[in-house]
Structure formats: structure tokens, C-alpha cells
Design a protein around this nucleic acid. Structure first.
Lengths: 195, 195
DNA sequence: TTTTTAATTGACATGATGTAAGGTTTTGCG
DNA sequence: CGCAAAACCTTACATCATGTCAATTAAAAA
């Protein structure tokens, strides 16, 4: 388990993430990763066949560190649809500060990193399943607005909870996070739930 | 005006856009642009000092073709805040189909194209000014929700009108555009306007 | 027609990715 | 411990895209 190989692999993965999340925002050349990890460029290639695979692995590694299940527990434990919606919205917004920098870095990555971006999309899709579950609970309670199907409501909810909107308000325009959360709670409820 | 120089420049710009908007999605190497325009790679460099400047110019060129003022006229002509909000929302959503593919292409561009991305952000900022104007009109009518400042309301409106949300619903999940528009009208009004 | 502008040709420097082969250190197992 | 295998290092090379230069040819414009 605590192989040398897996140890170096983890070191490399951590290094990639730290470079990706660094405030300056690195170009993440292979040589940068190698140097920052105190290793040769070729060693990096010994662990990952190419840049894209390295990024992909880093994203997975990041996801593992995120403790998603624990942070989603309150949402799953919610007694009814309304409170489940509330809890899930809050959980999502609490993910954003950690996740957003990585998203930004990935978006800056060039073409030829499509694989990595796919891995990212997968993570995002997982978030949408949470949206679907919340909407489903709402529907089960008969609290979902009549004109919305579950699918439509899920899409809409997911749309409202977008990270770029969060970044725009909180990071670029200085909204206090609690205020953004409050607005999102208000808007999502208005958008989905019967009055 | 119809110089040879400006003519080739336009040809190049059009070529860049057509490649950028092509369904397959090109990597847009300089040589691709040159070939597609029936011109030498060096000629491209004679018109644009580097890739980033070329992209930037292409974005501006794209904006010029978009006839923004005309499409925003209904919004400006609206008699009151509520109808202005409605008109602006509609105008924005009608921009998205044309704009989104370009955005996608730009996001795929590698690092070293920061300049081009800035040009893009500028265009987006201009859209936000429209949001601000609509919110302002609403406020003037006394129809803006009391707990929202103009700035907050503008941020929120802009957040709700996000292109990725549109793409998610309309492009990826097959919402009819009119249906998405209807939902956005509903949600933005609920989010901003006094009942 | 002449002059000037635009485009071409071909060569070169740079910098990143990825491959390859052979040598050295470290690990871990008998 | 001792030794084989795994991990890592060193060096070198192939490739490919960007960007630069200089000389030449083609074609507009005066």
C-alpha cells in the first residue's frame, strides 16, 4: 500500500493540484510538476503516459480529498423535499470555494486535455444527480410546481446553482457568502416549490 | 476602404471565425487558418503579430457582425421597468445560440491566449450593462424588490441569465427555446420584481 | 510604367511534448 | 545480509507549433 511507487504517485498528484490551485496560476508544464515534486521529468512520464492522463488522475485525486459523502449527508437526512432542497443548495455552495479554482485552472488548459475535462464533467454530473434527488423528494411531497416535470425541474435547479454565477457574485463582486446563499435559497424555492 | 490589405484581413478574420465555429471544433493552428484562407502562414503573421492578437481581432469582428444595437432596441424602447426586463431577457437568450459556439471554442484555447479571453470578457461585460439598465428602470418604477440594491439585483439577474445554463437545458437536454425563455422570464421576475 | 505594397518562399530559433536506451540508486524479499 | 527488481536518473533525440528574418515575386496604385 505504502509502496514507493504509490507514494511518488501521490506526491506528484498533490504537486499537480498545488500548482493548479496556486494563486498565480501555472501553465503546468511537465517540467514544472517534476521540479516542484523534486523529481525528473521522465519520472513523471513513468507514472502518467501523458499530460492529459496526469490531469485526469489529479482531478480524481482531488475528488477523493473532498469528502463528498460526508458533506452531502445533511441533504440525504432531510425529512422532506423542501428541507432537502435547502440542504442540498447549501452543500453545493459550500463546495464552490474549494472547487472553483480547480475549474478555472482546467479551463485554462489547452486543447489536447480533453480527457481531463471529461473527468471534470463527470464530477459535475455527479452534482447534478444530487439535484435530481432533491427534486424527486420535492415531487414525492407534492411540493413541486405543477408545470414542471422532474427532468425540467432538475435542469432548472442545476442551472440556477451555477458556479460561474457564484464566482461572479462572491469572488468578483464581493457578496458575502451567506448573502449569496440566502438569495439562492430564495430563488430556487421560488423557481421550484409551490408557494 | 476596400484595400487589398483590409480585404485579406477580413478574409482571414472570417476564416478564423468559420474554423472556430465549425462543428468539429478546430485546434486553430496558424497553418490551418492560412490554408483555409488560401494564404501563406507568413501572411497571417503579416496581419497579426501573434495568435492571440488574431483571436482578439476575430472576436471584435464577430461582435461587429452581431448587430447588437438593433437587437437591443426593443429593450431600450420598453415603456416601463417590467417590460424592459422582459425584453432584455428575451434579447439575451436570442443572442446565445449565435454566441455560445464561439465561447466554447475560446474556452478550448490554450494558455497564452489570455488577451483573446479578455476581449471576450469585455463583450460579456457589455451584456451586464444591459442588465444594470433593466434593473435601474425597475428601481425607478419602484418595482424592484425592497431587499435588493441595484448592484445586487444586477449581479443576480446576470447570474440567472448565464449561457452555460442555457446550453445545459437547450443544447444538452433538448428544451425548446421558447420553454427555456418562459422559465427564465418567470424566474427572473420572481427573483427581482415585486409581486 | 513605375513604384510601392502585399504575398510568397524557405530557412531558422525556441520551447514544449513525448520516446528511448542505459546507468544508478533504492526497496523489499528471500 | 545480499541480491534482484523496481524506481528513478541522465542524456539524447524526434516532432510539432509558434514566431522571426530576409530575399524574392506578384500585383495594386500612382
Amino acid at each position: 500500500m505504502s509502496n514507493k511507487r504509490t507514494k511518488t504517485r501521490h506526491l506528484l498528484l498533490d504537486t499537480v493540484l498545488s500548482l493548479l490551485l496556486a494563486p498565480e496560476g501555472s501553465l503546468l508544464r511537465m517540467i514544472d510538476v517534476a521540479k516542484a515534486a523534486g523529481v525528473t521529468r521522465q519520472t513523471v512520464y513513468d507514472h502518467f503516459t501523458n499530460r492529459s492522463e496526469m490531469l485526469t488522475a489529479a482531478i480524481l485525486h482531488f475528488g477523493d480529498q473532498l469528502d463528498v459523502d460526508a458533506r452531502l449527508a445533511p441533504s440525504r437526512a432531510a425529512p422532506d423535499g423542501r428541507s432537502r432542497l435547502t440542504a442540498y443548495t447549501q452543500a453545493m455552495l459550500e463546495f464552490f470555494p474549494a472547487i472553483y479554482p480547480l475549474k478555472q485552472s482546467l479551463m485554462r488548459m489547452g486543447p489536447g486535455d480533453e480527457e481531463a475535462k471529461s473527468a471534470w464533467e463527470d464530477r459535475i454530473r455527479a452534482m447534478k444527480e444530487g439535484c435530481a434527488a432533491a427534486v424527486s423528494a420535492l415531487k414525492a411531497d407534492g411540493d413541486l410546481l405543477d408545470h414542471l416535470t422532474e427532468a425540467r425541474a432538475t435542469d432548472l435547479y442545476f442551472t440556477l446553482l451555477n458556479m460561474d454565477g457564484w464566482a461572479h457574485c462572491v469572488l468578483e463582486n464581493g457578496w458575502p457568502e451567506v448573502e449569496y446563499l440566502a438569495e439562492m435559497q430564495r430563488v430556487t424555492h421560488l423557481a421550484l416549490v409551490k408557494p
